[in-house]
Design a protein around this nucleic acid. Structure first.
Lengths: 223, 223
DNA sequence: TAGATTGTTAATCGATTAACAATC
DNA sequence: TAGATTGTTAATCGATTAACAATC
């Protein structure tokens, strides 16, 4: 049965389920129990069942889950059963990489406009899409239905771009600039923060080394 | 006082603190209270104090925190007070974007080797670093001290590359391939999963729309 | 039917938040 | 000193996990 509110933690796990189910389907697995899936994914079976039951009872007692069906369900739940019209603002390193990445297109994300300020980039094409002058963004966004805006500008411009595209009615922003883009209620922002990701990794490296040197653990019994 | 174990949640917030403190220092703010910082960051003041006290008492009662000092402390805690020698495997779209991004270099991450299988890429240079044949990776990694390996290969090769670099003693992996790279204890892996990030964003878009259509909320009192 | 495995309730665990004494 | 704000303990909240009845 459906839960009244799906927690952030569950939402974050949905794409992971999708990923594993895609792979299982690809290698021809027909059914899987929460137990088996648990072992593969490294999370508890009971959590899997709990998570899935936020959206419906997709399994069958004594049998498990049909991989194909469950994958399809999760695909629908995430919203990958439709197409998305995407614009990308900032055609630098990361912008170009994302525009070139065909994985997104395969899942229904179509880049319909690429924008930049740099005159050297304007007019160039990425996968047959012309990079347009950022001054034309406002008009373009008004004239075309756009579902999602990717921001890959320097951090100084990110919020300004966000405000502008929100102003013309765009409801979701995938931000790669290293600032937290803010938006009014009803607009969805996902801040990626690659730096942060790297730093947590680096923290762990040093945490271990630090243990020895710093002796920061209050001795808690023997060991 | 230092906590015996710093939770994952706290670790994930450290780079965010660092980011905000960098900005505060840049714009010339000398001191800040947990209350003010709370407002800026959108997290509770009490959580900030709780978090910081995992590592030490950096504040002063009745005054707050010295921005410069606290930034320095967090920088040290994360481990950004030293240099890292990095190799990058997979010089495709994302690999090139990361190799070109100077932000990492500024924080002490030096790319000392770039590798690919593609003969068309091998020999090319990215920021004056030559792309080398992946067959030379094993020898290279043995002969050079390397702190971190960035994997930007297709998903099919990611685990294999990981196993190899772990085999020659590399202790941390920043993986961009859309699979969960596994590693033995003592090796740190950060799986980035850009797709997952996009999908959670997309989920939110549809969640809202879904509300109306599906009527999945059990009516809980009025409204 | 017997065996397996789900869906779901209840218990546990951990993280966030409130409250306040300590102290600058 | 009085006011401000930390550091820290205790309370709350939410997420994970265990347990088991339901059922295929």
């Amino acid at each position: 049965m459906r839960k009244d509110k799906v927690s952030e933690a569950v939402i974050r796990r949905l794409p992971k389920y999708y990923r594993y189910l895609m792979e299982l389907e690809r290698i021809g697995v027909e059914r899987i129990s929460s137990q088996e899936l648990s072992k593969k994914m490294g999370i508890k079976a009971t959590q899997i069942r709990q998570d899935l039951n936020c959206f419906g009872g997709f399994g069958q007692q004594g049998y498990g889950y049909q991989v194909k069906m469950l994958k399809k369900e999760i695909k629908d739940i995430i919203g990958l059963n439709r197409e998305y019209r995407v614009i990308l603002v900032g055609a630098g390193n990361i912008g170009q990489a994302l525009a070139n990445y065909i994985g997104f297109e395969k899942e229904g994300f179509n880049i319909v406009g690429i924008f930049d300020v740099n005159p050297k980039l304007i007019g160039n094409t990425i996968r047959s899409k012309t990079i347009m002058d950022i001054d034309t963004l406002h008009t373009f966004a008004k004239q075309n239905r756009i579902d999602l805006c990717i921001i890959t500008t320097p951090k100084e411009n990110a919020q300004q771009i966000a405000d502008m595209v929100i102003g013309v009615g765009i409801k979701s922003i995938w931000n790669f600039a290293p600032v937290d883009v803010e938006a009014r209620k009803g607009v969805f922002v996902e801040n990626v923060h690659l730096n942060d990701s790297l730093y947590t990794l680096v923290y762990r490296i040093n945490e271990q080394e630090g243990m020895k040197k710093r002796e920061c653990l209050p001795a808690k019994g023997g060991e």
